[in-house]
Amino acid sequence: MLHIMTITDTNFNFPGQKSLYKGKVRAVYNINDDLLVMIATDRLSAFDVVMPKGIPFKGQILNQIATKFMAQTEDLVPNWLVATPDPNVAVGHLCEPFKVEMVIRGYMSGHAAREYKAGRRLLCGVAMPEGMKENDKFPEPIITPATKAEMGDHDEDISREDIIKKGIVSEDDYIVLEDYTRKLFQRGTEIAASRGLILVDTKYEFGKTKDGKIVLIDEIHTPDSSRYFYADGYKTRQDNGEPQKQLSKEFVRQWLIGNGFQGLEGQTLPEMSDEYIETVSERYIELYENIMGEPFVKADVANIQERIKTNVEAYLASV
């Protein structure tokens, strides 16, 4: 069975471990209030609901995209990353996360398009122009932040003004977050274009190190946090009112919607067959190879738990 090859939960007890936090997809281990060991599991979340089965190689794919993009953007924006001792693991500096996700949109897609279709022209206090159709490019990228939710709760749209007024982020820090968000999106857009892709929208998360430095944390430009279109044929499809060819987990959301599920109260999560899960895994590998411009090398998954434990403990013993 496919799910034997996946890692959907971890309960390690590493040397110096102070705490364990489990997010929708990642498990974060605090080591001596100094380092964080972040393990990307194969869990799949959509509409803020975690699917019951894992997707083979998804954690490895997300971790490797995020860590490689951090290396490709560290000249612009400092990040939390220290090491990658295992294909599913990133080790970084302990940070205090900001309680907002910095969402930036170059095109009117996904949540923005759903809001627009419902007749709304303000998203997080930002005006969206009249006369747009789904997947059109915005005149300028717009930043539409969301407050970070605990597991299982929906993230909520919030305006820049409310973030500052409510004291969620200070104005000085928020100006830095906006600046970093725009710089990262510009770099991501350029890298995507070099691979025949359009970076449609994405989200970044930031934290503050113990010495007060704002750094990029978590994931960057992954298919879970971003939406990509194929550039080839984009204009023709827009002109003809056809859907865009996407590289993101939107295909999972659309499958769920087609099966009567949008994470709303009273809705039942549809069963994902092993065959469907295999196709999702294949799509994630395709995403990796297109986004990174290199072949995906599958890690040994005969005993993922033991592999991760051994690699992390060996790394911690070396620092």
Rank of each mutant, 00 (worst) to 15 (best):
F185R: 14
A193C: 08
M5I: 07
Q17E: 07
I4Q: 04
L247T: 06
T147F: 09
Y107P: 00
G106H: 05
A27V: 14
K166M: 12
E156N: 07
E190L: 13
S318E: 13
T202M: 00
D155E: 15
G260V: 06
E265F: 12
D33P: 14
I65W: 11
R227L: 05
A146K: 14
K58F: 02
F47G: 04
M102A: 15
V50C: 00
L316P: 03
L35W: 06
V176S: 13
L197C: 03
M5W: 02
S159L: 03
R105H: 09
M102D: 10
F12S: 10
P56E: 15
I308E: 07
P129K: 01
K213L: 04
L94M: 13
I257P: 00
N88L: 00
Y276M: 14
L76I: 03
T222Q: 06
G212I: 01
L197F: 04
G119V: 03
G212V: 04
P243M: 01
I65P: 07
E306G: 07
E96P: 15
T189M: 07
E171F: 08
W80L: 03
H111R: 01
T209F: 14
Q72L: 15
G260R: 04
D42T: 09
T202H: 00
A317K: 12
L256C: 02
Q72C: 07
F47S: 10
C124H: 07
I31R: 06
Q262A: 07
M38V: 05
K309A: 11
T10I: 03
A127K: 15
N79Q: 02
V25K: 10
I65N: 12
C124A: 04
R43V: 09
L216A: 11
L76N: 10
R121K: 11
I4S: 15
P15T: 09
I291T: 03
L123C: 04
L216T: 05
K203A: 06
M1A: 03
A113F: 00
F229V: 03
F261T: 14
F69I: 11
Y234W: 12
E140C: 14
D274Q: 05
D153L: 09
P223E: 05
M151P: 02
E278N: 12
S225P: 03
E134W: 04
V82G: 02
M128C: 11
L36M: 12
L20N: 13
D48K: 02
E289R: 00
V91M: 01
H221Y: 11
F206L: 07
R195I: 01
S281V: 05
F229S: 08
D232K: 14
V82R: 14
W80I: 05
E134I: 12
I104L: 06
N79Y: 12
